[in-house]
Amino acid sequence: MFKNHLISIVGAGPGDPDLLTVKALRRIQEADVILYDALHGDEVLQLASTQAVKIYAGKHYQDGQHQTERQDKIHEQLKEYALQGLRVVRLKAGDPFIFGRGAEELEFCFREQLTVEVVPGITAGLAAASAFHIPVTLRGENSMALFYTGHKRNGGFSDIDTVASVLKSNGPVIVYMGLKNLQLLVTALLERGVDRHTPLQISSRVGHADQQNYSTSLEELDGFLRKNEPPMPAVILIGTHAKPVLPEK
């Protein structure tokens, strides 16, 4: 016998309920308790039972709470509800394991010997590619795609040389980070000899009714960002072939 009801760490995809997997949808509909982050539209949450308890567990800007404290609180809640025999869903934007921080919660559940599962979701970068007709891989052109989040480390960006080398071999790089540091990242790439004409897409609010793609290039990003403010959340696609290909009118 399981001592708790199954905890599901569920990838909610980009926000469009039609992009949930069949399994994710079922878990959401059956849930007694849902812990969710920001970034989802309400639409996904509305699929849950009206009786389900919905708890916001995301990051409040400047709420003064330390990341570790916030994470501990989430862990406590997962455990508490599951031990009450309730069906708990931990809903995560996109996919839990692509910059979704699903691992900490999974590890906690393992350590506490709670039964747990991970349900994959459509990650924002791939949803953007589908929505805006951006090819990710092209036969004969590239054999690799890189998903990257730019953490600043020792004054530079982590893995920056890898990012530059993937771009030089025509592979696309899908970047999950805010726009604030994007220019710094692009400058670092140009310093490493990445072609300045390389296309760059900022795909804004993918999976929502107001989704929009902004096309620019590495060298033009600075000027672009001075004139435009793409709404968040956004995912960034960079690469020789990472530009929308649209049928001729």
Binding site: F97, I98, F99, R101, G102, A103, E104, L106, T137, N142, S143, M144, A145, L146, F147, Y148, T149, G150, H151, S158, D159, T162, V163, V166, G171
Partner: peptide, 17 residues
């Protein structure tokens, strides 16, 4: 996990070229 804070900040998907 494919990425994890402090352990992995990039993940590549590759096939034969």
């Amino acid at each position: 996990p494919l990425t994890h804070r402090g352990i992995a900040s990039s993940v590549s998907f590759g096939t034969a070229h």
